Amino acid sequence: MVDLRRLRVLRALAEHGTVTETAAALHLTPSAVSQQLRQLARELGVELLRPEGRGVRLTPAARILLRHAETLHTQWEAARAELAAEGREITGTLRLCGVSSAVAALAAPAVTALRDAHPGLTAEVREEESGDCFRLLLAGETDLALVLPGPGVPPVPDPRFEQFPLLDDRQDLLVPEGHRLARPGGVTLAEAAAEPWIVKRRDNDTFGLLAAACAAAGFTPRVAHEAKEWFAVSALVAEGLGVCLLPRLVPLPSPHAVVRVPLTGEPVPFRRIVAGTRRGGAGHPAVAVGLDALRGAAAARPGAVPAGGREAF
């Protein structure tokens, strides 16, 4: 018999490349990772790893096993979902993680709706960047993730996950009061090409979205200051130190003298908010009602623009 927990360790090693990084991603020690992989190899009677320099590489047998691992995990998630559906009442714990703005705008009201509709279900919320959310899904530490598609997010065809579009969140230009671009009728993004920009470049989903939007508008943003939290970004903008893109899910921090300017022309920058699950897990009753609650929260947003369909990827 194969322990799926050990198979998950092998899958993480294939993704991260080293025992040390795998251990960090799974919150284990490197020795524990190595032990799990040795036990898996003994169970199957094959060699899974070979030394290569200071690291290891996967053997052909390991690659074969990984091809089947996605099917095994999907079937296991589907089995858990079917077993949970046997109960009359939805109980247990639903764990959600997501980027901060989606947690505030979607997860918070969704959890309230779940609490009212399913008192036997406990929801736990955790704020993380998009890439980290998918790592938590793989590690079995969360059940639903609210993410922004981008460089750190698995592609749609990834067999490990299902992705459900929830909301297309338009972005505006944030400028100080009295700025030349503070026009009620809106401006094009290209008109801000010469402005200094405020955005954190690393460990921040927002930077990839900004870079893509500016590239589509025909320029590369000049980053003058780096900040990630919206309150800090807004304070810097209010002082005239630069401009930024502000999603409509994010409210204006009231103490700051800033103006939200609509962006016009094509393409208009937006962020797609997506819910992610482990493939096969969307049929679990707790995950299913969680997805429904998130969809309801998205639809209730003022001026919400439904994402391109409700089907899963």
Score class of each variant (00 low, 15 high):
residue 177 E to Q: 09
residue 121 L to E: 05
residue 170 R to H: 10
residue 192 A to F: 10
residue 212 A to G: 11
residue 148 L to P: 00
residue 217 A to E: 04
residue 188 T to K: 05
residue 205 D to T: 08
residue 213 A to V: 11
residue 122 T to A: 15
residue 155 P to S: 14
residue 193 A to V: 11
residue 213 A to Y: 02
residue 135 R to G: 15
residue 190 A to Q: 13
residue 135 R to V: 14
residue 160 R to L: 14
residue 130 S to K: 04
residue 194 A to R: 13
residue 204 N to D: 15
residue 123 A to H: 02
residue 215 A to G: 12
residue 217 A to W: 07
residue 197 W to V: 11
residue 134 F to I: 09
residue 205 D to Q: 02
residue 172 D to V: 04
residue 126 R to D: 15
residue 215 A to W: 07
residue 152 G to I: 08
residue 127 E to M: 08
residue 178 G to W: 05
residue 215 A to P: 03
residue 193 A to I: 14
residue 183 R to K: 12
residue 120 G to I: 12
residue 122 T to K: 10
residue 160 R to C: 08
residue 140 G to S: 06
residue 204 N to M: 08
residue 206 T to L: 03
residue 129 E to Q: 12
residue 148 L to R: 00
residue 200 K to Q: 15
residue 137 L to Y: 01
residue 184 P to M: 06
residue 168 D to C: 05
residue 128 E to A: 12
residue 193 A to W: 05
residue 189 L to H: 07
residue 210 L to S: 04
residue 190 A to N: 02
residue 197 W to N: 08
residue 124 E to Y: 01
residue 171 Q to G: 02
residue 135 R to I: 13
residue 213 A to Q: 07
residue 201 R to A: 12
residue 126 R to S: 15
residue 127 E to S: 12
residue 172 D to H: 13
residue 189 L to R: 03
residue 162 E to K: 00
residue 195 E to H: 03
residue 198 I to C: 07
residue 203 D to V: 05
residue 120 G to R: 05
residue 214 C to A: 15
residue 125 V to G: 01
residue 165 P to I: 11
residue 170 R to V: 13
residue 195 E to M: 06
residue 196 P to C: 10
residue 164 F to E: 07
residue 130 S to Q: 11
residue 139 A to Q: 02
residue 155 P to N: 04
residue 216 A to K: 10
residue 139 A to W: 01
residue 176 P to A: 13
residue 124 E to T: 13
residue 183 R to M: 07
residue 194 A to N: 08
residue 149 P to E: 12
residue 206 T to Q: 01
residue 203 D to F: 12
residue 146 L to E: 06
residue 181 L to Y: 09
residue 199 V to C: 15
residue 188 T to H: 02
residue 165 P to V: 12
residue 161 F to Q: 10
residue 139 A to Y: 01
residue 190 A to K: 06
residue 182 A to Y: 04
residue 184 P to T: 08
residue 180 R to P: 10
residue 169 D to N: 03
residue 210 L to E: 04
residue 207 F to P: 06
residue 144 L to S: 04
residue 145 A to Y: 04
residue 173 L to F: 09
residue 157 P to Y: 07
residue 171 Q to E: 06
residue 124 E to Q: 14
residue 174 L to I: 12
residue 158 D to T: 13
residue 199 V to H: 09
residue 154 P to K: 01
residue 192 A to T: 10
residue 192 A to Y: 10
residue 175 V to A: 09
residue 216 A to P: 05
residue 216 A to T: 05
residue 142 T to C: 15
residue 122 T to Y: 06
residue 213 A to C: 05
residue 122 T to E: 14
residue 130 S to D: 11
residue 196 P to N: 09
residue 189 L to W: 06
residue 149 P to Y: 03
residue 204 N to H: 10
residue 194 A to P: 05
residue 159 P to V: 09
residue 148 L to E: 01
residue 120 G to D: 13
residue 157 P to A: 14
residue 194 A to C: 06
residue 193 A to F: 06
residue 168 D to R: 02
residue 159 P to R: 03
residue 154 P to R: 00
residue 150 G to Y: 04
residue 134 F to Q: 02
residue 153 V to F: 03
residue 207 F to K: 00
residue 189 L to G: 11
residue 179 H to A: 13
residue 179 H to T: 14
residue 139 A to I: 06
residue 153 V to L: 03
residue 183 R to Q: 15
residue 154 P to D: 08
residue 200 K to S: 14
residue 136 L to E: 09
residue 164 F to S: 01
residue 208 G to M: 08
residue 172 D to F: 03
residue 201 R to F: 07
residue 208 G to F: 12
residue 210 L to A: 09
residue 163 Q to R: 11
residue 167 L to S: 02
